[in-house]
Design a protein around this nucleic acid. Structure first.
Length: 136
RNA sequence: GGAGGUUGCCAGGCGGCCGCUUUGGGUAUUUAUUUACCCGCAGAGGAAAGUCCGGACACCACAGAGCAGGGAGGUCGCUAACGGCGACCGGGGGCGACCCCAGGGAUAGGACCACAGAAAAGAGACCGCCUGCGCUUUUUGCCUUCGGGUUCUGAAGCGCGGGUAAGGGUGAAAUGGCGGGGUAAGAGCCCACCAGCCUGCCGGGUGACCGGCAGGGCUAGGCAACCCCCUCCCGAUGCAAAGCCGAAUAGGUUCCGUUUUAAGGGUUGCUCGCCCUUGUUCUUCUCCAGGGAAGGCGGCGAAACGGGUAGGCUGCUUGAGCGUACUGGCAACGGUACGCCUAGAUGAAUGGUCGCCGCUUCGCAACCGCGAAGUUACAGGAUCCGGCUUACGGCAGCCUCCAGCA
RNA sequence: GGCGGCGUACCCAAGUGGUUAAGGGAGCAGUCUGCAAAACUGCCAUUCAGCGGUUCGAAUCCGCUCGCCGCCU
């Protein structure tokens, strides 16, 4: 049996090529604290990449931000439904199979300041609001 | 109670659930220690930081010595080593507890010391003071034949010399201070005392140095975080070091097969073709004047080999290690015995959430207690150690000064 | 991770122990002009990234910190 909420290396973007491809060709969404890039893949699983620049915060701050974002991805992966990733409202709703994507979440400057998240529910509040309107 | 000084310690704890990394075992799976799951063990710091020093380790270079270059700098010790640490000496700061010092040499030599000032470093010089000579003026004398005269006396000025370093608005810094004698004027020129320097001797200390006695002559500015001298130390590069394995594509070498003129330019929308240039106008044999055969060159295809890229593995964590007891030493630190194993990640692991306890603040209360909020500062290993420096929250012990009460 | 370099006005910068820290551009004010441009004149650094030390004296020499940039792949 496969654990429901596991998060191993196969669920991550691991080399610079994958990152730059997603950022260059993917669709982009922005919120107050993050910029999210999404690109469809054919792997039957979502993959996550995190980009937190040294300008955002110091060492512990960056690591904590990544941990929060990773935790968000791990616990809410099933809620990131396939349809949310479809670029526009084309008539492709006949497909039944799950569509998956590579997702890069890049932290913006404000994430390191007081506006940034301190608890997990703050991240969920901001990013789930982003993915659900994508259903349309 | 307030203000300080110094030394040491902590970096919230426990549990449930969901996850991450290493590793041991098990089950399943696989060509493969490949992947998945289950159980267990372990999982950031005092600064992990800055990369400022010192080592270990790796590789390259290297006979020895010297030069160049870089660094250290009171003494004695500790240490693998150090620019670190300890004790002591000397100097400085503070009422004090205590703190700070790149703290060798300025008679080995060179450079520099702006402005101001007479002068800024071996030199005596400007003003001044004193004095000799000459001249001029003048005064008092003196002489007088009463018109005057001027060797001589005093004063002033000018010129040419001599003596002197007392004094001279300066300056960061000016050749010691005060008193007396002395002199034409002055001067350590002489004397007493004080301060400093040098030399010798005696005593104490491993030593830096300290104390005492005697003598000397006033010659003696600062600056070596300027060059320099003296003593001591240093080969270079750094885990992206270094070693091993090694895909695809292109290229290299060898070999086999096959094919047989090659390169560049022009013409054209493009291809073929044609034309031009360069090179081969390859060697041998044969028939014959153009071909054929073999070899060479070149092209194509296949195989092998080596270099080597992406990538992977090793290096990679047991170490100048930690704890306890005894012990040597004022201490830094060392010795002996016993016990322990304590991160190895790589788009980079230690998290999330809930509960309880602890702590802080606020409110109610003002004895117990109840409620709310927060759980904080600096900050995340990247080959590993020893230091230094910087950032920063809290607690405790000891000590100093001030104030108040008894 | 390791190894180097640089910080002077809003911008580019000279200055390598000694009066009040050159110069150019931009900006501001003025002269000129009907108005502009150009030209000319004037102003603009209480201190050289910050702190400490050496020195009579530091942008300059020394040490520490902060910030920025580059190289090794």
């Amino acid at each position: 049996m496969v654990k429901k909420h596991s998060f191993s290396k196969t669920d991550r973007l691991l080399n610079p090529k994958e990152f730059s491809r997603t950022i260059k060709n993917g669709k982009r969404f922005t919120t107050v604290n993050y910029t999210v890039y999404v690109l469809e893949n054919s792997l039957c699983r979502h993959r996550l990449g995190l980009a937190v620049s040294a300008r955002v915060a110091n060492g512990p701050g960056r690591v904590r931000l990544k941990r929060l974002l990773r935790e968000f991805f791990r616990l809410n992966r099933d809620k990131l439904s396939s349809a949310s990733i479809v670029p526009s409202g084309k008539d492709s709703d006949t497909q039944e199979e799950q569509r998956t994507a590579d997702i890069v979440i890049s932290a913006r400057r404000s994430a390191g300041t007081d506006k940034g998240p301190k608890r997990l529910f703050e991240v969920e509040k901001e990013l789930l609001g982003l993915f659900k309107p994508g259903l349309i």
